[in-house]
Design a protein around this nucleic acid. Structure first.
Length: 608
RNA sequence: GCGCCCGUAGCUCAGUAGGAUAGAGCGAGCGCCUCCUAAGCGCUAGGUCGCAGGUUCGAAUCCUGCCGGGCGCACCA
């Protein structure tokens, strides 16, 4: 898809240059508002007014006179200081008739860590936001041209995993195979926590649980953890996620990365063992130079009993991600539904080209902003300000369920498996009602169910708390994935019919026949690449999600456009020349929607 | 208390590297299937952009203060 804004910016820059003015930064160009002349416009003259001590109107008019020829631009208007451009309709429609394509791969690899669910329980709606955001970001960054590597971190030495494994053993629970194992294990965990509310039980079981933590750190219980992880992976894959590698926390420890990280930090002036005070005997990191405003800037890396905190391991992991430390080995773990092989860190593996990225995106909820800031501080403490710059914490707010915080103990949770099943069931019902002759209702139901669930997680800005409400998520009307999918299916239907009629629209399109309806659609389509790039650079899929909603709305309006009570934009029934033009545009629109949906992990059904 | 984030239509949200009359969806009211899928489209009603100052030719967007709400301030993560 051709970029129509870049040539405008280039021309403006050139005009400025010929007037002896250097543009201060990027030159703003946007769609002209409704009711104003031109298709695109720039307020550049306003920005220069003060510096040049001239009125915007004067500057705009001088600029207009100095502009070079711009391909496709028919007229340039200076309107009250704005500089607007009217394109040849044929040019815009032709530009939009070419679907978007991925940017060629360029630059340094971006390592994105997401999911990283404790291997002790089934996934719930809170985890869902992480997977949906992380997977969408990976797809978007990839499309935008970045080499991307996706890591799922397995916190197998944490207390949570230990408690679940302990509970399974303690209650002598044998799974009969009737239940997905992560759900089964999760129940043991919940039961244990109920029992731990009793003080005497807690003091009796505490040492035994710590024993399990120790065994986990030795890597002894890896298979037991893997059994839970494998069940969780089923859910992650069902969501459409895919990973390059699993990195196990126990491997960070066993391969010596933790020790290397601690050794390196110990050589800096910021890390030392405390001789007195509340941290006596612990090794702490004084972050005050890097994180201002803290009452207590000391972060414990190694407890006085000699055990390392999670944050210490996370620092080691971050240093590995950025190539400061090396030493993890990998081997194939399994083949994913995406077709990609999933690798795992393993002591009996081989060195592989994972890690060593200059830029990392850590998808993790906002409550962990402080430990994430500590990772950045650790990089700076080691003198790697360059890498600290490349550390991005994609901090997303938590998910509420029907207005209240999630709570496993109060049973106020919804598992992802349950959610997908329910969404699919609802979709099945709607399809049976709306399209009883559907050729493959089960496929469409799964596509619509999954789409609704994933889209609900990415359409809102990450830093905003979202309230998961069954009624809204399962509503297949309005501002939601089914709206986009329906728009896509409508376009697909037209193309299917055209093919059935034996039409060939690759030739014979006459772009000079384009009406304002096609131009409006084309302009909406031409905003796609910018939306993707902005989503990539700002690390948020919601910009793309909102662009797609806008695009689908324009397309639906096009589809329904009427003049004098008659359909104004028939595609198949249009006269030759215009018909082919419309078919090409519809084909490109369909492809644009399909790509956009795919980048968000939302399936694009051919028939709904 | 200190720090970070959020206050935009009845509800849920876009819009914030300053730009042209603040936009959607849901909900309310009225219309549109002899026309390529009505999961759609059109129209109407609904907003002192939390409040008060400030900077600017121009502020929902930047600065300051205040008022609401969320989160974080453990030898947890």
């Amino acid at each position: 898809m051709r970029d129509v804004k870049a040539p405008l910016q280039a021309a403006l820059r050139q005009a400025l240059h010929s007037l002896g003015i250097e543009a201060p930064g990027p030159i703003p160009v946007d769609l002209a508002p409704k009711g104003k002349p031109g298709d695109y416009g720039s307020p550049i003259a306003f920005q220069l007014a003060r510096k040049l001590k001239k009125s915007p109107v004067e500057i705009a008019s001088a600029l207009r006179d100095s502009l070079p020829e711009i391909p496709g631009v028919r007229e340039v208007h200076a309107v009250g200081g704005f500089l607007n451009f009217t394109f040849d309709p044929a040019y815009l429609v032709t530009a939009a008739s070419e679907p978007p394509s991925p940017n060629p791969k360029r630059g340094e690899k971006v390592l994105i860590e997401h999911t990283s669910v404790n291997p002790n329980k089934e996934l719930h709606v809170g985890h869902l936001r992480n997977v949906a955001l992380g997977d969408a970001m990976a797809r978007i960054l990839d499309f935008a041209g970045h080499p991307v590597e996706v890591i799922n971190y397995i916190d197998d030495t944490g207390l949570q995993a230990a408690e679940t494994l302990f509970a399974l053993d303690h209650y002598r629970l044998e799974d009969s195979g009737g239940e997905k194992f992560d759900h089964f294990a999760g129940k043991a965990y919940v039961r244990l926590h109920k029992d731990l509310e009793d003080e005497s039980v807690r003091s009796a079981l505490g040492p035994k649980i710590r024993e399990v933590v120790k065994r986990l750190e030795q890597g002894e219980l890896r298979e037991a953890v893997a059994r839970i992880l494998d069940a969780q992976l089923e859910t992650m894959w069902a969501l459409g996620a895919s990973y390059d590698a699993l990195v196990w926390e126990s491997d960070i420890v066993r391969e010596g990365l933790l020790q290397k990280a601690l050794d390196a930090l110990a050589k800096t002036p910021y890390v030392r063992r405390m001789d007195e005070g509340k941290y006596r005997g612990a090794i702490v990191f004084d972050t005050s130079e890097f994180i201002p405003g803290l009452e207590d800037p000391y972060l414990v890396l190694v407890r006085s009993d000699g055990t390392a905190t999670y944050t210490a391991k996370d620092i080691a992991f971050q240093l590995w991600k950025m190539g400061v430390l090396e030493g993890l080995r990998f081997k194939p773990y399994t083949r994913q539904p995406s077709g990609k092989t999933l690798y795992t860190s393993a002591p009996d593996g081989e060195p592989m080209a994972f890690g060593g990225a200059k830029r990392t995106v850590n998808v993790i909820d906002v409550r962990q902003s402080y430990p994430q800031a500590v990772l950045k501080a650790a990089l700076k403490a080691l003198g790697r300000d360059d890498l600290a710059e490349g550390h991005v914490h994609l901090a997303y707010e938590t998910v509420l369920l029907e207005g209240r915080p999630l709570s496993g103990r109060k049973g106020h949770v919804v598992s992802v498996d349950e959610l997908l099943e329910e969404a699919t069931r609802r979709a099945r019902e709607v399809i049976a009602e709306k399209n009883p002759d559907h050729p493959d209702p089960e496929l469409a139901a799964r596509q619509v169910g999954l789409g609704a669930v994933r889209f609900a997680m990415v359409k809102t800005e990450p830093r905003r708390q979202i309230d998961f409400r069954w009624q809204a998520v399962l509503s297949f009307e309005g501002d939601a994935a089914p709206y986009l999918q329906y728009a896509h299916a409508r376009a697909a239907s037209i193309l299917r019919k055209a093919k059935a009629e034996g039409l060939d629209w690759q030739q014979g399109a006459d772009p000079t026949l384009a009406t304002p309806h096609e131009v409006a659609l084309a302009k909406a389509m031409l905003g796609f690449s910018e939306a993707v790039e902005k989503s990539a650079s700002e690390h948020t899929p919601h910009l793309l999600a909102n662009h797609l909603l806008d695009l689908a709305a324009v397309w639906n309006a096009y589809y329904n456009a009427k003049e004098n009570g008659r359909p104004a934009t028939p595609v198949l029934g249009a006269p030759p020349g215009l018909r082919e033009l419309r078919l090409k545009l519809v084909e490109s629109l369909k492809e644009t929607l399909r790509i956009g949906l795919t980048l968000l992990g939302v399936p694009a059904p051919e028939v709904m």
